[in-house]
Design a protein around this nucleic acid. Structure first.
Length: 422
RNA sequence: GUGGGUGUAGCUCAACGGUUAGAGCACUGGGUUGUGGCCCCAGAGGCUGUGGGUUCGAGUCCCAUCACUCACCCCA
């Protein structure tokens, strides 16, 4: 019979990997809550227009990477390719500006983009996302990056670099864009075919072209940071100042461009050289016009996203798998012991203990083998004789010692032992 | 959408065009009454991705197709 495979680019996360995910998620919640962020959960499916209007009609994400469906009424919907648009939508829809407790948000969940999968890039992938509204002050820009750095530190991630840039604002960016376009025109014969195209569609993108020839041709290109207006320059100067006060190392990368149209002023990425072609573990920036453009009040915003698959790929190179404490094992011999053990295991679970037992009447040898494979520190052995006396043999697998334990005391006794062992 | 690489047991991999496709790990049972790791024995597990072709003979060579993977594009 033909078997059914998962959809291309959409992965199962199996139990032997889930420890990484729990570790990342719980650390994220702890760090973000500390900074005053509150979790928000938005639907995976949104109206297509939301993404078209926020990310930008002519971006690759919107033009060719979204999973879209028409519902029965013919309305176009899309699986979210990123989180910011949805959170901004919820912020507007529920008038959260009026709620003093709801200015900073985080979200953890799956995103969808129809691209060809490769290392660190999947069609369903997961993002950690943080968004803060209502503050234009550079202090918040720095704090957001500081929070990101704090999270990565707590996770134990090594060897990543924070790149920062300023994209200017709607006043000064078009001026630069024109200047750059003029430069590219006279340098065009040195550019690769892709950059020839980008020259017209999105000239800033030529900066992160990987073709050497292009980079060589761009050596004398005008620099974005030299061209932004004085307000933007001052904002950026203060962002850098606060980062230094916080002790957050950064690199200025005046050629860093981001793929979503809504960004302005501060943008940043967490870059690694250990993920093959996908070198961005996280990225974000300021988007002051976005809330207004989506029909809300004119409040500024800033945020970032982390790619969880990429993050975990890196963590796996840096640290051992986050472990859980193994279960207590109940070895039962004979039918009476099997029945008694079944009830005893439930009593132990009521105390919050993790308990595993043999249900199938296997030999003691194979039960012990299994307990060892599971890594169990304690095995409670119930044999025919012990059951008669209402007792069990408590074996400490590590110390190789064994003591008799009255069964009515077993749950409480093991509870004590486990909390001591932890 | 465009290139390259790879498809053999659950996993990692062997097998010059030539008997019945193997190994390690994992799994199951056993090594004298009811005790784990190390060791030993045994067992189970395969339409060699799929479909054609060449050949006396194909896991092996050729073509197609599918899947996976890396890279381009783009991005987290």
């Amino acid at each position: 019979m033909e078997t059914i495979q998962a959809v291309k680019g959409m992965n199962d996360i199996l139990p032997d990997q889930i420890g990484w995910w729990h570790f990342v998620e719980s650390t994220t919640r702890m760090v973000f809550e500390n900074f005053g962020y509150r979790e928000i959960r938005t639907p995976a499916l949104e109206k297509l227009d939301l993404f078209a209007r926020s990310i930008g009609e002519s971006t690759d994400i919107v033009e060719k990477e979204m999973y879209t469906i028409a519902d029965s009424k013919g309305e176009w919907l899309a699986l979210r390719p990123e989180a910011t648009a949805s959170i901004v939508r919820a912020f507007i829809q529920h008038n959260l500006q009026a709620d003093p407790l709801a200015r900073k948000f985080y979200a953890i969940g799956p995103m969808f983009r129809h691209e060809r999968p490769q290392k660190g890039r999947y069609r369903q992938f997961h993002q950690i996302d943080a968004e803060a509204f209502g503050v234009d002050d550079p202090m918040l820009d720095a704090e957001v990056m500081y929070m990101l750095q704090t999270l990565l530190e707590k996770l134990g991630l090594n060897g990543v670099v924070l790149h920062i840039n300023s994209l200017g604002c709607p006043e000064c960016r078009p001026v630069f864009r024109e200047k750059l376009q003029k430069f590219l025109e006279q340098a065009s014969n040195g550019l690769c075919p892709d950059c020839q195209r980008r020259r017209h569609t999105n000239p800033l993108r030529t900066f992160d072209c990987k073709v050497e020839r292009c980079q060589a041709s761009l050596v004398d290109a005008p620099i974005l940071l030299d061209s932004i207006c004085s307000d933007c320059a001052e904002h950026f100067r203060q962002v850098k100042g606060y980062l230094e006060e916080l002790g957050t190392p950064y690199v200025i990368n005046s050629r860093m461009v981001r793929g979503l149209d809504y960004y302005m002023r501060t943008t940043f990425e967490i870059i690694t050289d250990r993920l093959g072609a996908q070198n961005a573990v996280g990225g974000g920036g300021r988007y002051n016009g976005l809330v207004r453009d989506l029909g809300g009040p004119d409040v500024p915003g800033i945020g970032f996203a982390i790619g969880m698959e990429r993050l975990i790929l890196l963590l796996q190179q840096d640290r051992p798998v986050p472990s859980r404490t193994p279960p207590i094992f109940l070895a039962v011999l004979g039918e009476k012991a099997r029945q008694r053990g079944f009830l005893l295991s439930q009593a132990m679970r009521e105390l919050g203990l993790e308990v595993e037992m043999d249900y199938e009447g296997r030999s003691l040898k194979s039960q012990m083998r299994r307990a060892d494979k599971l890594g169990s520190r304690y095995v409670l052995i119930l044999g025919e004789d012990e059951i008669q006396r209402n007792e069990g043999q408590l074996r400490d697998m590590q110390e190789k010692t064994q003591t008799v334990l009255p069964l009515q005391d077993a749950p409480a006794e093991l509870k004590k032992l486990m909390s001591g062992a932890a």
